[in-house]
Amino acid sequence: MDKETLSASACPSQALVVDDHPLFCDALVLTLRSLCDKTDVRTAASLGQAIEQIEAGFRPKLVLLDLNLPDVNGLDGLIRLKSALGQCPVVVVSSMADNKMIAQALSAGASGFVPKHSQRQEFHRALTAISNGETFTPDSFVPGSAEQGGQNDAFDRLASLTNQQSRILQLICEGKLNKQIAFDLSIAETTVKAHVTAIMRKLGVQSRTQAVLVAQEARFSEILPTAEARHA
Rank of each mutant, 00 (worst) to 15 (best):
A45T: 08
A126P: 01
G48L: 05
D98C: 00
L171T: 05
F24T: 12
A182T: 09
G57N: 04
L62H: 12
N99S: 07
R120Y: 09
R201K: 14
A198G: 04
S166N: 13
S111M: 05
R167T: 02
N73H: 14
F220W: 14
E217A: 14
R59Y: 08
Q216L: 10
Q165M: 12
L67M: 12
V205H: 08
F113C: 01
A227R: 14
Q210D: 14
G57V: 04
A188D: 05
C173Y: 08
V212R: 15
Q206A: 11
Q151V: 13
G57Y: 08
S111P: 03
S13Y: 01
R208V: 03
A105I: 07
C36S: 15
S95I: 04
L85I: 08
A159W: 04
E134Y: 13
L32K: 09
G204T: 05
R42T: 02
L158K: 08
V17L: 06
Q170M: 06
K82V: 00
I79D: 00
A50H: 09
P89F: 02
T191V: 02
S13R: 11
S9W: 08
A97S: 09
E228D: 14
A182I: 10
P89S: 01
S7V: 05
P225A: 11
L69Y: 14
S9I: 04
A188H: 10
R157N: 06
R80M: 02
K3L: 15
E217P: 00
A15Q: 00
A110H: 13
V142N: 13
S207W: 07
S207H: 05
E174W: 11
A182F: 14
R120K: 14
E174P: 04
G77D: 00
C173F: 07
D26M: 07
D66S: 02
F113L: 02
V114H: 14
V17H: 06
R125Y: 12
K82W: 03
L177C: 01
V196M: 14
V63S: 01
A194F: 11
C11M: 12
M96G: 03
A27M: 13
A50I: 08
A84Q: 14
P115K: 04
T190N: 10
F183I: 13
K100G: 08
K202H: 10
D37P: 09
S34V: 04
S186Q: 06
S221L: 10
Q180S: 07
P143N: 06
R120D: 03
L62W: 08
F220H: 12
N152T: 07
E217G: 03
E189V: 13
I54S: 12
G74Q: 03
K116S: 04
V29F: 08
E147A: 02
C25Q: 15
Q210R: 11
L127D: 00
L224A: 14
T137G: 05
I168P: 00
T137H: 09
P60V: 07
C88Q: 01
I172S: 02
D139K: 10
S166L: 05
S95R: 15
R208Q: 11
C88W: 03
P138V: 05
L171P: 04
S160V: 01
R120W: 12
S207T: 08
Q165R: 09
K202C: 07
Q104T: 04
L30H: 13
L6T: 11
A27Y: 11
Q121H: 12
L81V: 04
V41K: 01
K100T: 10
T197A: 12
A194C: 01
D71V: 04
A198Y: 05
G48A: 09
